[in-house]
């Protein structure tokens, strides 16, 4: 791995950081855990997002806001999240090692949207929204919308915080299937169930996590498995993923 950086910039406000968006040879970094996966970096400026005042967890009414630079370890240990969003605790608990969770940030988990992410399926079933800043002002959009547009959006935007309405149910679950507790997922499933509403998201398909909206509507297991668009990869076969998902969906509708 070869890394060449001309200068490190430490902005103290989102407005200051935004000045560097869209400029050539500029890269942004927060927790830096994804750096180990990059083959080479050669940039004139590296903008440090950790100096922005975006590391917070706050509750306002029935809304929880999590700042983009909040480390996953702080999320896992947040009393408000433990009390109101335990599904997110379960998802974060399953992310790699402690020494990674103290560095990796919520904003980074969303921005990178790694296919094996444990955080994204949980955020999808929680119907989380993102507030992002760009030169024209702030914008709020759903997780799904952000994921589909994130490559182009990240060229001009900075994620400020994730907003989640506290769900009125205790019937939820997050399941990670992996070779070991330290490994990335072969499949992960998040669900949230109320009397008349079911939300299901599947990750490590091996593509980026997605909500199974047709399944949620029709409760048809075959349709749900098809909708997940599962595939083979080195970690697990399409067949294995289909068997596990099918079995879990059956339990969810029973």
């Amino acid at each position: 791995m070869s890394i060449k950086i001309g200068e490190f910039i430490h902005p103290t406000s989102v407005e200051e950081a935004l000045k560097y968006k869209g400029k050539p040879n500029v890269m942004f970094v927060a927790g830096s855990t994804a750096v180990g996966k990059v083959e080479s970096i050669n940039v004139k400026k590296m903008v440090n997002l950790l100096t922005l005042p975006l590391a917070f967890v706050e509750k306002e009414g029935n809304i929880i806001r999590i700042g983009a630079t909040t480390p996953l370890d702080d999320v896992e240990n947040s009393p408000a999240i433990k009390k109101y969003l335990p599904i997110l605790i379960d998802a974060v608990r399953h992310v790699g090692a402690w020494g990674i969770k103290t560095m990796a940030t919520m904003g980074g988990a969303v921005a990178t949207a790694f296919p094996w992410s444990d955080v994204i399926p949980a955020l999808l079933v929680l119907d989380a929204s993102l507030t992002i800043s760009r030169r024209g002002g702030r914008l709020t959009l759903s997780m799904e919308e952000f994921i589909s547009k994130r490559i182009s959006m990240l060229k001009s935007c900075i994620i400020e915080y994730i907003e989640i309405e506290i769900p009125q149910t205790t019937n939820w679950g997050f399941e990670k299937y992996a070779h070991s507790s330290f490994d990335i997922a072969m499949l992960n499933i998040a669900y949230l169930k109320t009397e008349d509403n079911l939300r299901v998201a599947v990750g490590a398909r091996p593509g980026i996590a997605k909500r199974l909206k047709n399944f949620e509507k029709h409760r048809d297991i075959l349709e749900g498995v098809k909708e997940a668009e599962l595939k083979d990869d080195a970690r697990a076969s399409k067949w294995w993923r289909e068997q596990v998902l099918s079995s879990r969906l059956k339990e969810l509708v029973s």
């Binding site: 430490h10 830096s32 020494g99």
Partner: peptide, 11 residues
């Protein structure tokens, strides 16, 4: 605990 092999010193 952090992974110092990933952390930029500047940060």
């Amino acid at each position: 605990p952090i992974r110092s092999c990933l952390k930029f010193t500047a940060q």
